[in-house]
Design a protein around this nucleic acid. Structure first.
Lengths: 261, 261
DNA sequence: ATTAATCTCGCACAAACCCGCAATAAAGCG
DNA sequence: CGCTTTATTGCGGGTTTGTGCGAGATTAAT
């Protein structure tokens, strides 16, 4: 289908679409936009200029490039305590999703970061017990959010109980993102909260691929309640300087170490 | 059949149709509306201006775009945006709860305010389809929060669907707080979103006492989808200068008007 | 260095906008 | 019934915004 010569009568809508094209393709050229919207070069240049002035993109000769800081103004700036390390890991993890997948999100600050790093172009169905993540993804244009119900655990901000487990069990997901708070080669995944265990186990059971994301300080730690052995994790995304990585690789995990700037 | 040049006499009806057109097409232009309704440009401009002032759409040069989804708005900054009137009403409503009760909270900015005004001393069990309210009450020392699961409606930030309805139906609550967005003596409670209707009806069915809280501008308004007749509301808390209060009292509602200073 | 594409700047025109005013009609009231 | 009040609408101003055009400067590539 030909999108060229598409009639746009609202200037602000045109600018909005320019941003969408930029997000989809990673770059836009002025001449390409001129043909696409059937307007003069000056109009496109003015649009790009204003968008750049608003800080929504970076202007370059011949077109524009995305502004990498884009997703930074999202919700929960009060959770801005999250350091740059977690953010980097989350960005890498978010790149693992593929269009059309059904994805589980465990609760946690790390997984919340992943949700906020999801590309705006991808179409997903997300199932999560975390109201935080549900809200964070509510404005995503192409993500359908399904929230597991049940009693809310104030400490973890995650729902639990029989209802939540049953809903998660009724899902056959392609992917699970979990941010383990303690991972030990022999003991496995452990948690500080007993109420979380059942939900986490249900999440692990319902996903055909499990991605755990964690900072290196959580590796080798042990908490009171055991969730599952390490072998249930397929991919572990962690920092470059993570210790004892071989122990996990020998258990069959694919370990991806991320270079933090 | 030709829709063009159709005669529209009720201004409010025309504004409703503008909203429907906007929802259908994702945009409306002023000139297009002028032709569609056969009125002058000024009339359309006034309509769009009032709709924008009411927050129902975003006004742009040449027409209007759908209300920008609450992107970038932090959870707590949004709370700060609510005016003092709503806060006063919420404070009054929050005083209605009694220790040990099971309370339902509908979704909405007004009910969120009520949740935040709850006295810290009271012991409650709260059931709600709104993740926002769930999070807001998570740090309350004596409130047990149960969140209804299901698909999240991005516009209302409320879960819906069969799961949510079933969980709500399984509760026998003492109290329901609902912030109606449109209440009309004859038409009853109406909503802008079809997906909300089933959940709202389930909430009404599960509570033995219903308290509706609304600013006076919502009284007399009508939205496309009917939820229930006014008689389902037991107590209506609204502003002092609310119009047509007798109409609601004659229907058996207890109306509490709050003096806003 | 030369060429072509792109950018900047000023200008003109049309469309859209804002404001105040008057005409019309519906609703309220003595 | 007649009057006022209010709401809605259309019209004429003057203003702002968006757009396209052309001249000259700048940039990137041959």
């Amino acid at each position: 289908m030909h999108n060229t010569h598409q009639a746009i009568d609202l200037p602000s809508l045109r600018k909005q679409k320019i941003l969408l094209l930029l997000e989809r393709d990673g770059k836009v050229t002025a001449s390409e936009l001129v043909e696409h919207f059937a307007v003069s070069q000056d109009t496109i240049r003015r649009d790009l200029g204003e968008l750049a002035a608003a800080g929504l993109l970076q202007r370059v000769h011949g077109g524009a490039l995305p502004r990498p800081k884009d997703t930074g103004k999202d919700f929960f700036t009060r959770v801005g305590e999250t350091n740059e390390v977690k953010r980097q890991l989350a960005r890498v993890a978010a790149g693992r999703v593929e269009d059309g997948q059904i994805v589980l999100f465990d609760s946690g600050s790390t997984t919340l970061q992943i949700a906020q790093c999801l590309p705006h172009a991808v179409h997903l169905t997300v199932v999560t017990p975390s109201p935080m993540i549900a809200i964070a993804l509510a404005d995503h244009p192409h993500v359908k959010v399904i929230l597991a119900g049940g009693q809310l655990n104030p400490a973890t901000l995650s729902t639990g109980g029989h209802d939540a487990v049953r809903l998660i069990q009724s899902v056959k997901a392609d992917l699970l993102f979990t941010g383990v708070c303690a991972l030990h080669p022999q003991v496995g995944i452990t948690s500080l909260h007993f109420g979380e265990v059942a939900v986490k186990q249900a999440l692990l059971d319902s996903a055909s691929h499990v991605i755990a994301v964690t900072t290196s300080d959580k590796l080798g730690a042990v908490e009171p309640f055991v969730v599952a052995p390490c072998s249930r994790i397929h991919t572990l995304i962690t920092e470059w300087d993570a210790p004892d990585v071989q122990a996990y690789e020998q258990l069959g995990l694919q370990v991806q170490r991320v270079e933090v700037q």
